[in-house]
Design a protein around this nucleic acid. Sequence first.
DNA 1: CAGGATCCCACAGGATACTG
DNA 2: CAGTATCCTGTGGGATCCTG
Lengths: 136, 136
Amino acid sequence: MINKLNFDDEYLKKLEQNICYNKILNMADTLDVLAGKWKIPIIVCLSFKPKRFSEISKELKTITDRTLSKELKYLEENLLISRNIIDEYPLSIEYEITEHGLSLTRILMVLREWGELHREKILEHHREDSQSVHKI
Amino acid sequence: MINKLNFDDEYLKKLEQNICYNKILNMADTLDVLAGKWKIPIIVCLSFKPKRFSEISKELKTITDRTLSKELKYLEENLLISRNIIDEYPLSIEYEITEHGLSLTRILMVLREWGELHREKILEHHREDSQSVHKI
DNA sequence: CAGGATCCCACAGGATACTG
DNA sequence: CAGTATCCTGTGGGATCCTG
């Protein structure tokens, strides 16, 4: 989670002087937690209520067991979800979003809002493009 | 930029009913704009002032020309930066962040803040772990 | 049911060399 | 200077099969 961006030493110094370096690292850390195809869907899926492995798998139908397993482990290590053993025999486990996981809600809201804005911008720009083509 | 998450049709329906589907897509779109090793550093680098290809390359020392070229094109297509031709002979081009690009500032702030919080959480958790080890 | 083990492919991004 | 073209490698994640 540290120095994913691989700046060279000299630039790091500059950035550090600008107090910029750690800021960029923190951004990268957050992106890391949300990166990939399935982390957000899993988080959203669990944000409604705790669910079991097979339930999540069913809801996100196209996810593979392997990937779901890895992602759940990752999210647990990052304290975003907890893995609760409900029954020993037969084995029954429930995944639940933590408070820390819920603190991502604000991020997701902001991401969603900007995504909407961005989509508008892009569409608007393409409309202008096709208009100017017609003008010619 | 559409349906990167590859849900199957039935799940899409459910999600659509929950108005959840488009929200997740918008989040994914925003992440897409920020994903990868270099997009944020480039945006931050240009957010101070317009710069030329070689200047950016120098500041982010370890980036390759190929990657910088591709990323600049991507960011331009997404209207986050503009490519301004300063001189024809000799060729001189300046990259400048757009207003839309600056609107990412809020996202980056929120990402940074959560990244700090997250780092604290993780470190705190590891401290607890090592304490309980010492207790034993 | 809740996963681990293996194999495989597509794609991001680095290294290097070349061009208008 | 401002890139493009080729080649190459590491990694995310799918497919498939296996286990406590």
